[in-house]
Amino acid sequence: MNVFRLAGDMTHLSSILVLLLKIHTIKSCAGISLKTQELYALVFITRYLDIFDRFTSIYNFLMKLIFLGSSLSIVWYMRRHKAVHRSYDKDQDTFRYQFIVLPCLLLALVINHKLTFKEVMWTFSLYLEAVAILPQLVLLQRTRNIDNLTGQYVFLLGAYRALYLLNWVYRYFTEPGFVRWITWIAGLVQTLLYADFFYYYILSWKNNVKLELPA
């Protein structure tokens, strides 16, 4: 494992901690898209179907458990916890699942390394993760007042993806034969989706003004 990969994982973990902090201590999920959170839960469930029969390392195993547990608990909080649920911007969070899930599923059935259930589900999880942020970005654009924690959450998620890109560049040059087209293209698309957000996030940080995305 290289430093970019570790930094990427830690950034991903931080993003989840920031979101849990907001939900657990402030009891608010204002500005957070439940659709995106449910898609992430689906991403982890379909990606880690092999959690008990393919062992790579203690680190990977524990991280998989953390990602599964945290994503499911966030969905539970937003749906079932009364105070948290009240703060949910349901009327603004209108992105439709089927526009994301169905194309990803079809693509995974067509473009994969092996036509088996687990491999197709794993490939589906990569495609789904690439676009799962879309409902959140749409919601951000509609939210007049993006609070700091929400802004930080999305920024950390984007940073995690950028660090994974660096990790792949590093591995390409240090590991002979390291080529993973499906992972790379899905990862690149995912990172590019954050470009616009990054631009306005850094601008607001530089000018020390509240983050607001143009309509």
Partner: peptide, 10 residues
Amino acid sequence: TADEEAKDEL
């Protein structure tokens, strides 16, 4: 196996 993509990342 070789025809599956390797899975050592999260």
